[in-house]
């Protein structure tokens, strides 16, 4: 398509509008504002999606919702729900808080190679735990994190 200003030919694609975006943020407050990792595209996602759920490491007072060195503020205009889940990014990491759980990721990759081992993984880590706390307990007892 021709750019009306420069005359250059560009390839264009329609914008993606997700029904729901789930982002993992450093912190959030009761107004729905969050501070998330500035190296990620979370704000773009939140602004593109029809609904955005922000999973946060901690709930803080609005006065304490400060971006810090690697954070970016996202207005409550773009957030529909805030879920408090410490270590909610596990088995991936959360910058400046905790690293990727390499052992767990390797176990996951191994389990995903076969249908039955993957079913056992789902049973143990996803289906059986009643909540995130229970999930983390099972992970801890498994040796990693």
């Amino acid at each position: 398509m021709k750019d009306p200003y420069t005359g250059h030919d560009y390839a264009v694609v329609p914008a993606i509008v997700p029904d729901v975006a789930v982002i993992h943020a450093f912190m959030g407050d009761r107004t729905g504002a969050v501070v998330t990792d500035s190296s990620r595209n979370d704000r773009l996602l939140a602004m593109a999606a029809r609904k955005t759920i922000a999973v946060v490491e901690e709930l803080v007072d609005p006065d304490d919702l400060m971006p810090g060195k690697f954070g970016i503020y996202v207005s409550p205009l773009h957030i529909d729900a805030v879920v408090v889940a410490p270590q909610g990014a596990h088995p991936t990491g959360c910058r400046s808080r905790y690293e990727l759980d390499c052992l767990h990721m390797l176990a996951y990759i191994e389990a995903s190679k076969q249908e039955d081992s993957f079913a056992s993984y789902l049973q143990k880590y996803i289906i059986e735990p009643k909540n995130h706390e229970q999930y983390l307990d099972i992970v801890r007892s498994g040796g990693s994190r």
Partner: peptide, 9 residues
Amino acid sequence: EMRLTEGLH
């Protein structure tokens, strides 16, 4: 150490 304003975007 690289600080971005807003990710890959």
